[in-house]
Amino acid sequence: MSENSTIRALLDSAGLHEPGTDAARVIVHGNRVIGSRLVRGLEVDARETADGIEADISVRGGVRIETPIHMCFGMLPETGKQHIVLRVRMGKGAAASILAHCVFPNALDITHSMDAEIEVGDGADYSYFERHVHGREGGVLVLPKARVRVGENARFKTEFELIKGRVGRIDVDYETHVGPRGVLEMIARISGRGDDRIRISETGILDGEGSRGVLKSHIALRDRARAEIHNRLVANAAHARGHVDCKEIVQDEAAASAIPIVEVNHPKAHVTHEASIGSVDSKQLETLMARGLTEDDAVERIIRGLLG
C-alpha cells in the first residue's frame, strides 16, 4: 500500500476526511512517520525505533497555534506492536491543542503503548484529546502512560475517549503535578463490552497555591466487561481545589469498581469526590420512556450522554 493510501485508510477508519491544509499534522503508521506538516513555532523531531517512534514535540514560547494539531497513530494489520515515546514541551505562554486518533481497525493482537513526558511551561495552555478507534474484535492492548508537569498559571487538559469499537484491554496511567494557579483536567470516557478490561489510574498532585484539578472518568460497561478506576487527587497547597468524578453504568454481567482517593495536606485546600456505579438511573430511564422511547433506546441515549 502506498503511503497516501495508508493515510487515507487510517483517516477513513477514524471517520475523518483529509483535514484542511493549514492544520499541522503527524501521521505514524507502525514505526514510520508517513505524513507530517508543520506550522510556524511548532517543532517535531521524530525518530523511528524498532517497534514505534520516539518524538520530541515543542511549541516555542509565546507561540499560540489556533488550529488543533492532528496526530494519527495506528496500524492497519491485525497483529503487531507500536510503542510511542513522546516528549512534549510547551514553552512559556505557548498554546496548542493536539487531536490524536489511535486507529486499529483490524486488530486481533496489537499492543499500542505510549510513554509521554509533558512539560507545560508557565502560562502555557496545552490540550491533548486522544480518540481511539478500534475494530470489532477488541484485540488491542492499550497502555498509555504520561507524566506531566503543569507550570505556574498554566493549563493542561487531556481527554481519552474510546467509545467506538471494542476496547480489548486498556490500562491508563497518568500522573500530573500542578504548579501555582495551574489548572488540570483529566477526562476518560470509555465504553466496554464483551470481555473488555479497563483500568484507569489517574493521579493529580496539586502542589501549587491556588492550583485546581478535576479527574473525571465516565465508563459504560456491557456483557462481561470489567473496569477498575483508581483516581487520586492530592492537594498540598493553600487554596488548591479539586474534584474527582467517577461514574460507571453497568449492564448485563459487567462489573466495575471505583476507588477515588482524595488527600488534603493543607488546611486551606479543598477536594471533593463523587462516585456512582450502577445500572441506568431508573428515573432517567422512565422519563425517556414516558416520552415513548423503548427501554433500549432510552438506555442508549443515557449512556451516550454520559460518554458524550
Partner: peptide, 16 residues
C-alpha cells in the same frame, strides 16, 4: 424532573 449528565436539551426535547 430527572437530571441527565451530558444529554443535550435539544436531544431531550426531541426524544419524544
Amino acid at each position: 424532573p430527572a437530571r441527565f449528565e451530558g444529554l443535550l436539551v435539544r436531544d431531550y426535547i426531541l426524544a419524544g
